[in-house]
Simulated assay, not measured.
Amino acid sequence: MHAELKKFISQSLNARAELEQKLIEQAWESETFKQELINNPKAVINRELRQQLPEDVEIEVLQETSKKVYLVLPENPAQVGSGVELSEEDLEKVAGGISVCLVITSIDQCINNSDTTGAQDLV
């Protein structure tokens, strides 16, 4: 796998983990927020990211219990676009600027943040 792609995937996973942690903490603190997240997760994430996820992205929130645990198997990045090299434009996106990539229900969607907001402000 191309070194820039590995770096991009690592940064994307870190950004996702930070966003997920923020949402979990808010859900623990507020029953109202938790119910909104369960009932309309896409709207909550759109609001938290201050951007709109693409129409075809689906988000499902599952709540674990002491007797039920979920294991999420993300799409294997090595198999996504297998055999396809990144274009110069895609490499440029990875090399510069700030991107947040969410892997949600096995769908990769990248949201480029071209304003001056730092990545930490998004998560």
Rank of each mutant, 00 (worst) to 15 (best):
H2S: 06
E4Y: 01
I9W: 10
S10I: 06
L13V: 03
N14D: 05
N14C: 06
A17M: 11
L23C: 06
I24Y: 12
Q26I: 09
A27H: 02
S30V: 10
S30T: 08
E31Q: 12
E31R: 09
T32R: 05
F33K: 07
F33N: 06
F33Q: 06
N39F: 04
N40P: 03
P41E: 03
A43G: 01
E48V: 11
E48Q: 10
E48L: 08
P54N: 14
P54V: 14
P54I: 10
E55T: 13
I59Q: 06
E60G: 00
E60S: 08
V61L: 03
V61D: 01
L62R: 11
Q63N: 10
E64H: 02
K67V: 08
V69L: 07
Y70I: 11
E75P: 03
E75A: 03
N76V: 09
N76L: 02
V80R: 13
V80Y: 06
S82D: 10
V84L: 01
L86Q: 10
S87R: 02
E89S: 10
E89I: 15
D90A: 12
A95P: 00
G96R: 15
G97M: 05
I98T: 04
I98K: 13
C101L: 14
L102H: 00
I104M: 05
I107T: 00
I107Y: 08
D108V: 08
D108A: 13
Q109T: 15
C110W: 12
I111R: 02
I111T: 09
N112V: 07
N113L: 14
N113C: 07
T116D: 13
G118M: 07
A119G: 02
D121G: 09
V123T: 04
